[in-house]
Design a protein around this nucleic acid. Sequence first.
DNA 1: ATTGGCTTCTGAACCGTTACGGTTTGTTCA
DNA 2: TGAACAAACCGTAACGGTTCAGAAGCCAAT
Lengths: 366, 366
Amino acid sequence: MNRPMRTRRQATLASLAAELGVSRTTVSNAYNRPDQLSPELRKRVLETARRLGYPGPDPVARSLRTRKAGAVGLLLTENLSYAFRDPAAVGVLEGLALACEDAGVGLHLVPASPGREDVAAVHRAGVDGFVVYSVPDDDPHLAAVLQRPVPTVIVDQPEVEGVDRVGPDDEAATVSLANHLVALGHRQVGVLCMRLARDRNDDFVPMSRQQEAHYHVQRTRLAALARTFEAAGVAWESVPVVERFEHNVDDGASAARQLLDAHPRVTALICTSDILALGALAEAGRRGLRVPADLTITGFDGIAEATRAGLTTVHQPVLEKGKSAGRLLLGAADRVAPKVITLPTELRVGTTSAPPRTAEERWFGP
Amino acid sequence: MNRPMRTRRQATLASLAAELGVSRTTVSNAYNRPDQLSPELRKRVLETARRLGYPGPDPVARSLRTRKAGAVGLLLTENLSYAFRDPAAVGVLEGLALACEDAGVGLHLVPASPGREDVAAVHRAGVDGFVVYSVPDDDPHLAAVLQRPVPTVIVDQPEVEGVDRVGPDDEAATVSLANHLVALGHRQVGVLCMRLARDRNDDFVPMSRQQEAHYHVQRTRLAALARTFEAAGVAWESVPVVERFEHNVDDGASAARQLLDAHPRVTALICTSDILALGALAEAGRRGLRVPADLTITGFDGIAEATRAGLTTVHQPVLEKGKSAGRLLLGAADRVAPKVITLPTELRVGTTSAPPRTAEERWFGP
DNA sequence: ATTGGCTTCTGAACCGTTACGGTTTGTTCA
DNA sequence: TGAACAAACCGTAACGGTTCAGAAGCCAAT
């Protein structure tokens, strides 16, 4: 409440019509279909509206009647800090917002704290459709969204039977990255990954947890790494994988620290995101390890800061990802078959990957 | 449309009540006031709902009746790329989203392209209040928002009589920055600023445009700089000010280039945002100018990347700014007097500001 | 037998609009 | 002169809920 002089009782379309001595239909038409009434009358309606402080048709009532909310909902159960601090996520957000803007519809961020199981917010959101971005497959909010009788598009994860989806080919992208490392000669590698389930585990990850991960993207990437390295003669059980619940540079650094403390002989650190990789880079610097001479580090996403740091990474078009999701949803009028859009990825070899030092070099220097 | 098996005609609360042979009130209560009916009946209602595919009370109809949309609107007329690419803006967004999440309400991004004058989206948004972030004072969308009979909070700009506002004390912050430069001995300075009006002017800025800027923040900062330097004996008319419409690092660099080409003798570049300053830093590097030995550069905002770069800047708590705005709006129940929250700022002297080289040093080196 | 107090459920009003299918009025043209 | 038609306006019925003041039924206390 801030502007003074609020009229006692808000004027409505009906009261305005009464004041003017015309029907409600006519007032409605004055706003929505100017061609349905004479210009003079329309002018009179609009003037009286101004005089009475009538702010125009109520958006909610209109939505009820027209069955159109003029907005799409965005569900991301992740901690909001993830969505706003990771440039990759912000890129998706921006792309989605752009698609919405093009279509003239609003973007409604659904409040869904990761902790609270309060699904009511999903039910309360007046939207024409949902975009679900990167949530675990067992998330109750997701279930609530799928309940709603509106179209839904999932970005990245999870994969749900019969629901539209847009995301990169994580499988292929990860394989190409792994092959790059294998080709360089790396056999003793370590992995830093994002959260694998809703329960916190800032520690090493046993095989079972890797395979049962509720985050499809992480699961796929780990599986692709496993297959590729197994094929190169590496026993995946022996490969240390460290998980972090929070997704930021500092946690990436601490994960790298934990891994390197326990396995000082790894020659490459594979990170499932650039943010984690940037942390690993920082930790390497702190330890006096030269990258890539002493340690190879790779990321995933291709964010701007990673490019500036020369990180070897897999680039994916995040802006396009968001845009595609928006367009897919908004154009979903009366499609029958679910659609899946797979985005291209590109391995970008930077200055953080190189052949491992030989054992000799390790002990005596180059 | 993607999930199969959509019931012909959606079930409604009424049809569900009919099926059960109870009143609509009872069904409504089953969802909203479990204590108003026997547990057995409630269970039966919910089960039948599931069987009939009734997704629960329609959010829009509910909003109409309860006069609560459960969402706040966010208006930012800037190009979306501004809102998502500048970490300072993203911080505000995040803070606002956090405040909304705490309150359990959604955040509705209103589609308002800077170009199109289409104000309809503002009218169409079903929200309980608006946050307006950094728009010019003559923006039609802003006018449309103020028309709506809901509380509004403005962040940063513009200043509107009788409307709640939250922002830093730009005046004081800028003066402290300017005094820092004056104290160092700078008298030949140049300024890089963000857009001053809705019309594009990627060029030098005459006094008149500075004073009539429609972006209050930029106007205030320029005025504060002018006053402080005038007091130090600098004729402000002679100080070159370059404006950029787009707000990103590259444009900051090009602005620096344009200014330095025309005025090679300036000893300090004052930028009204960190993003512009980062561009200026890059341009200085390209020219072989050492910072701060050859050129002092300052920013504004205190974003993380600026801190990493050692930029001398004015830090403002952007996350807190967004949070405050959200809380102010959500708590605005029935306040009478408009409220203005001024956030603290802090001059952070980094490694990009130092005394100017003397003329002698300029020509012969240190 | 009456009273009062619960619990449980109902009827009807209301929220503010737009869609649909009219009716009225005035103009044109054969 | 009257039929045909367009323009301008209107009445009614949804849209899908929530809410409030009771009614009905039941039991304990008086």
